[in-house]
Amino acid sequence: MSPTVTPFSELLRRRSRTGAGATAGASAWAGGAHDLLAGDCDVADYADLLGQYAVVYDALERAAERMADHPVAAPFVTTQLTRMPAIRADLEYLVGPDWSELCCPTAATTAYVRRLNEVAATSPGGFVAHHYTRYLGDLSGGPTLARLLEERFGFDTNGVLFTIFDQVADPAAFEDTYGAQLDAAPWTAAEREAVLAEVDLAARLDRALVASLRRPASPTAALGGAAHPLLA
């Protein structure tokens, strides 16, 4: 009897929900928001977190533009998942029209973006690792996060647009298709291990970003200063 071969998508799912990557692929962004909101935070703290993620998603979506024509990465690039328009709208509601001028990335956010620029914008495997970590997490964790924000702050649509994927009619079917694309990617065993390792790193970068916002010196510690060049 030949040994059973575990699909790569299943290996990635297992890795993302255990060990170092416990927040990845299940709900990285939503998990970070849950961590912050579980403490004594207010709307300004949530806006701080969203402002940091604006920098991260801007870098990731710029990487997606560069990877759109790559034969391996292209199947994963879709406007259905694009989050920056929703993030901008949420921050305009939470902070005001000048939110981008007030967004000052923490050192952890800067490190996260540096890694995205180094890997996600240049390597198809690195891009998919970060793409999977962020967007599949958003898709699965968004409804729970939306309910939490509604209960905590009374948000309905404004303030939680980020969690709404109105272009994905069937999230479960979308995730199945994504998994099939992962399994079909022509990676060697070594390349697959590199993707798994990058998912672990993406989770650590995300946790560091959230930790950098805990117990800030003031409610607006992360919203103040010059505009980040990625948001220009």
Score class of each variant (00 low, 15 high):
Ala129Arg: 06
Tyr132Asp: 03
Arg147Ile: 06
Thr133Lys: 10
Gly142Phe: 02
Glu150Pro: 08
Leu148Ile: 14
Gly126Lys: 02
Phe153Arg: 01
Gly154Leu: 04
Asp138Ala: 09
Glu151Asp: 15
Glu151Met: 14
Ser123Cys: 15
Thr133Met: 12
Ser123Tyr: 08
Leu145Val: 04
Thr157Leu: 13
Glu151His: 13
Gly159Ser: 03
Asp138Gly: 05
Asp138Tyr: 08
Asn158Cys: 13
Gly142Cys: 10
Val160Gly: 01
Gly137Glu: 08
Ser123Met: 12
Leu149Phe: 12
Arg152Thr: 14
Arg134Gln: 10
Phe155Asp: 01
Val128Glu: 01
Leu139Trp: 04
Leu136Ala: 05
Ala129Cys: 12
Pro124Leu: 03
Thr144Ser: 14
Gly141Ile: 00
Gly154Gln: 08
Tyr135Pro: 01
Val128Tyr: 00
Phe127Lys: 00
Pro143Arg: 06
Arg152Leu: 11
Gly137Asn: 02
Leu136Arg: 10
Gly159Met: 01
Arg147Asp: 12
Gly142Glu: 00
Gly141Arg: 03
Ala129Trp: 01
Val128Phe: 04
His130Gly: 03
Asn158Leu: 14
Phe153Gly: 02
Pro124Val: 08
Tyr135Val: 07
His130Met: 14
Leu149Ser: 04
Tyr135Phe: 12
Gly137Cys: 07
Asp156Trp: 05
Asp138Cys: 11
Gly126Pro: 00
Thr144Pro: 02
Tyr132Pro: 01
Gly142Asn: 02
Ala129Glu: 07
Arg134Trp: 02
Glu150Asp: 15
Val160Cys: 02
Gly154Ser: 11
Arg152Ser: 12
Gly137Ala: 06
Thr133Gln: 11
